[in-house]
Design a protein around this nucleic acid. Structure first.
Lengths: 341, 341
DNA sequence: TTGTAGGCGTTATCAC
DNA sequence: GTGATAACGCCTACAA
């Protein structure tokens, strides 16, 4: 294997100078630098990442740890984060934990011992049980999407406002009994969305009945079944708010399969925009989430605030949209805009 | 920072023994081992990944380099690969190149200098220009989805057969003028799908007209416009085969927007299964691709054949399915089955 | 601007 | 089964 000393020898300089030239140190004569670069190129030499990281006690990696890579919400975050990291000379490494807290912990430890510059973490249920280990540690961590009862900085959406807005909209359109397909219990997102939902019901003078709130299981199938169950009730809702992107899909499917048309039979609104939503007539009312901004901001927070002071969460604005905008639209299509398969 | 010698001291052994105990070496007395593990736990100590990789000249990382993380095809591959890697004690690192060959090369170099155990690469257009650099190198590379004119092992789908089967099916259903929304030129996938398509046309005694073959631009919008253009032709096709997952979505959208019903006005079939496909009535004819098997096999090839002998491509079977199976279905839903947002 | 030299934390080798 | 020791390849005071 070719090492730094080989390049040094070929360029007639010391290995220190090669190191400086190759890492972009300014204190190198431009002629010398060029000679070094030429030698390195001739030998097809690149600095060894492991030795470099070991000696510097840091690597220019940022980890993005997500629970479900198959959720477009996270792939959009990943896309934006990758771009932001790359712009600043860092590499983004995406780790999928498959909703397994043990896996999640493994990846966090990996990134820690790999001396990553930071980790962007979308916490899964169970995360907080071990995360305290990293409080005040070497590894900067930024939470996205959900907050935890732990002093980490975070970037989230204004879930309460969006839920409020959707619910109010449903009420304005005439709904009297607004049901909810809710998300995972004990998460900040579900908590906030529920709060917005309840607040809107109150403000609209509508009743809030617990039988109209069902946890959707956080899957398409779960959303499907929850909506089906809600609508089969003798005293069924006349409108539905779905708390996340995949359950919204399931909810819509359920209505279609039950032969119910919106907004007449049941009105419906939900979090998350999906690529085929625009096909539905009438259009759906959906919450478009600022995934790209979330990814970008998280990277910035990692790089610009290496010392974690546990500031207040950064809250990004959701947008309530109608699903019929296209092809000019650059929101609904994002999750499936590219393909090289 | 706590180091291996601290643990050694606490356990009254040498650092060599700690190293052996912590890396699972068998040649350690079980009592000693336990003492070491206890000490390590007490000190919250974990081996330093960079030092370890540097000394061993390898890390237990597998890279997955894809061009578009927002394509469900690749996220499904990633999910399966992650699982397979984890099962064997490796960590999968996903890198998104955003279809930029420069980025792709950066990530390959990164994984190389990080001493990864191997890389699974979904080559983008332009890849082969620099990839020769890795031929016979330290870093095992397995290509997925597409093959290249380079001696790397690969795992692909039987694209020709699937295209043949779909085209034949359209012909059997009565289509006489079958058009194609094709994929990126100069790729093995497009090449093979075109071959299957043409072969089926010939076998069915149907004409092949170049005006019925349009490159879809490999996006939803591209598929939409291509389908629209094809169908606006005075001498329009009476059936359409779309060459990849997102263009299939675009194609379906175009037909709906033009008020055309399948299979009566135009019949349609396409590669890729998407989660909302089951809503369409009548069901769509889609090619379900073996993404999970692809991810799993690629990991196995990396780990079991570290010496690359450039064997023949591993070809996995596609399945032509109808899009109405659900909820028992475990194919169509895969790409959106999970959510914790 | 460049060189010298020491050490980052681990593991492979070789003794015992 | 365990210990001593010498690298692994690079970076960074410090000196020149």
């Amino acid at each position: 294997m070719t090492r730094i000393s080989d390049v040094a020898q070929r360029a007639n300089v010391s290995s220190a100078t090669v190191s400086r030239a190759l890492s972009g140190d300014i204190h190198v004569d431009s002629v010398t630098r060029q000679r070094v670069l030429d030698s390195a190129a001739a030998l097809d030499y690149r600095l060894d990442g492991t030795a470099r990281a070991m000696r510097r006690r840091r690597s220019d990696l940022i980890g993005l740890v997500i629970s479900t890579i198959e959720n477009p919400f996270f792939t959009e975050v990943a896309h934006a984060a990758e771009h932001a990291a790359q712009q600043r000379g860092y590499s983004l490494i995406i780790c999928n934990t498959d909703e397994d807290p043990v896996e999640e912990q493994r990846y966090l430890n990996l990134l820690d011992t790999l001396l990553a510059s930071g980790v962007i973490l979308a916490p899964a249920p169970g995360t907080s049980l071990y995360l305290h280990r990293f409080i005040g540690g070497r590894l900067p961590i930024v939470l996205i999407n959900r907050t935890l009862e732990l002093p980490f900085p975070s970037v989230v959406c204004d879930d309460e406002d969006a839920a409020y807005e959707c619910t109010s909209l449903l009420a304005q359109r005439g709904a009297k009994r607004i049901g909810a397909v809710t998300g995972l219990p004990d998460t900040s997102t579900t908590h906030n969305r529920l709060r917005g939902y309840h607040r809107a019901l109150t403000d609209a003078g509508l009743a809030s009945e617990s039988q109209w709130e069902i946890f959707g299981g956080a899957t398409v199938q779960g959303g499907y079944r929850a909506a089906q169950r809600l609508m089969s009730n003798g005293h069924a809702p006349d409108a539905l708010l779905c708390f996340n992107n995949v359950m919204t899909q399931g909810g819509v499917m359920a209505l279609m399969d039950m032969g119910m048309r919106w907004p007449d039979d049941v009105d419906i609104a939900g979090f998350g925009v999906f690529s085929t939503a625009r096909l539905y007539r009438p259009p759906l009312t959906l919450v478009s989430q600022p995934t790209h901004e979330m990814g970008r901001r998280a990277v910035e927070m990692i790089l610009d605030h290496p010392v974690q002071a546990a500031p207040a969460p950064v809250i990004l604005q959701n947008r309530v949209v109608q699903s019929n905008a296209w092809p000019a639209d650059n929101v609904a299509m994002t999750s499936a805009a590219h393909n090289i398969n």
